[in-house]
C-alpha cells in the first residue's frame, strides 16, 4: 500500500518495534524530541532528497509552527489536535508564500533565497509582540487531545507523538511512491527534460515544497506541545543547519536515513550538552566529514554494503 519493498517493510517493522519498546528503557521526553526532529528531517528530505532543492531555511516553518501551536494552546485554549493542525497549516501557508518566491531560482540561488527569507521570518519573530521576543512563548499547557485524552502524562504524550511521526513518515513515503513523486524524481534528475515532456515543473516543485513545509510546521507544533515552549531557537538558522545535517548524516534521499540521522544527532547533543560551544565545532566537523568522505550517509552506506534499498 505504501510502496515498500520487502527489505523496507522489514526495516519499517523493526523501527515500529523499536518505537514501541524504547519508552520502557529510555527517557520518553528525550525520545519525543528525537521523533519530532525525525519528522522534521523526513519532511526536509522530501525537498532535498527527492526534488534535489536545498532549502536552507526550513527552521522558519518549523519555528512558526511551534509558535502558532504554542500560542493557540496557551491563549485560545484550543484542543491539542487543533493546535497541532494549526501548526501544520501555518507551515503550509508560509511555505506557499515563500516557496512561490524561492522556486523562481534553482540550485545555489534557491538555497540562498530560502535562507534569506527564513532570516526575514526570524527578524519578524524577534520583533513581533506575540512571540514574546527573546523569552519565547513559555509554559504552554499540553491540554487534552480530542477533549478526553489527557496529555500531561509523558507516556500518553509519547504515543501521540509516535503516531504523528508514523503518520507523517508513511505519508511522505506514499507521496514519494505516487506518480507525483515519480515526476519529482524526474525533475531532480533532469528538469529541462521534464519540462519538454509537458510537466509544469514549477507547480510540482511548489507543491512538494508546501508539503514539506506543512510537515515541518507539524513537527514544530508537536515539539512546542511536548516541551511547552516555543522560542527563537526553533526559528533561527542554526536549526535549519541542524536539519540539513541530520538528513546528510543519515543518508540523502533514503527512506530511513533522516530518522537515523535525527537519532544520532539528538543522542550526540544529549551527551555533549555539557561541552557547550564544542557542540557547534563537532557539528561542523561532522558536516565536513560527511561532505568529503561520507556522502551517502549512514543508511546509504549500509544499504550500499548489502545492496539494499533502504
Amino acid at each position: 500500500m505504501f510502496g515498500f519493498t520487502r527489505t523496507q517493510t522489514i526495516a519499517f517493522l523493526v523501527m515500529l518495534v523499536l518505537i514501541a519498546l524504547a519508552p520502557f528503557f529510555l527517557y520518553p521526553v528525550f525520545l519525543m524530541r528525537v521523533l519530532c526532529m525525525a519528522l522534521f528531517a523526513c519532511a526536509f528530505n522530501l525537498m532535498l532528497g527527492y526534488v534535489g532543492l536545498l532549502s536552507f531555511g526550513h527552521a522558519a516553518y518549523f519555528g512558526m509552527g511551534a509558535y502558532i501551536t504554542g500560542w493557540t494552546m496557551k491563549f485560545w485554549h484550543v484542543d491539542a489536535s487543533v493546535a497541532i493542525a494549526l501548526g501544520g497549516l501555518t507551515g503550509a501557508i508560509l511555505g506557499l508564500c515563500l516557496g512561490y518566491l524561492a522556486i523562481r531560482r534553482s540550485g545555489i540561488y534557491f538555497a540562498m533565497i530560502t535562507l534569506a527569507l527564513a532570516q526575514m521570518v526570524y527578524f519578524f519573530c524577534l520583533q513581533a509582540p506575540f512571540t514574546g521576543g527573546e523569552d519565547g512563548i513559555q509554559q504552554v499547557p499540553r491540554g487534552k487531545l480530542f477533549g478526553f485524552i489527557d496529555l500531561s502524562n509523558d507516556m500518553t504524550m509519547y504515543w501521540v507523538v509516535a503516531s504523528i511521526f508514523l503518520a507523517g513518515f508513511l505519508l511522505i513515503h506514499r507521496i514519494i511512491h505516487s506518480p507525483f513523486g515519480q515526476v519529482l524524481k524526474g525533475i531532480r534528475e533532469n528538469e529541462p527534460r521534464a519540462v519538454s515532456l509537458g510537466y509544469r515543473t514549477d507547480d510540482y516543485k511548489l507543491i512538494a515544497f508546501v508539503l514539506s513545509c506543512t510537515l515541518s510546521g507539524l513537527a514544530g507544533g508537536t515539539k512546542a506541545l511536548v516541551f511547552g515552549i516555543a522560542t527563537l531557537t526553533d526559528v533561527n538558522y542554526p536549526m535549519s543547519g541542524e536539519v540539513v545535517l541530520m538528513v546528510l548524516l543519515g543518508g540523502l534521499g533514503t527512506v530511513f536515513g533522516p530518522t537515523m540521522g535525527a537519532m544520532i544527532l539528538m543522542t550526540m547533543e544529549n551527551y555533549l550538552a555539557e561541552f557547550g560551544a564544542w557542540v557547534t565545532v563537532i557539528q561542523g566537523v561532522i558536516f565536513m566529514v560527511c561532505v568529503l568522505a561520507f556522502r551517502r550517509g549512514v543508511i546509504g552506506e549500509i544499504g550500499g554494503l548489502f545492496k539494499l534499498k533502504l
Partner: peptide, 19 residues
C-alpha cells in the same frame, strides 16, 4: 561534485571556525 556540497562543506567550516 554538485554545487550544493560546496555550500554544505563551507557551512561546516563556518561552524567549526566560529565554535
Amino acid at each position: 561534485l554538485d554545487h550544493l556540497y560546496g555550500l554544505l562543506l563551507t557551512f561546516g567550516m563556518a561552524l567549526v571556525i566560529e565554535g
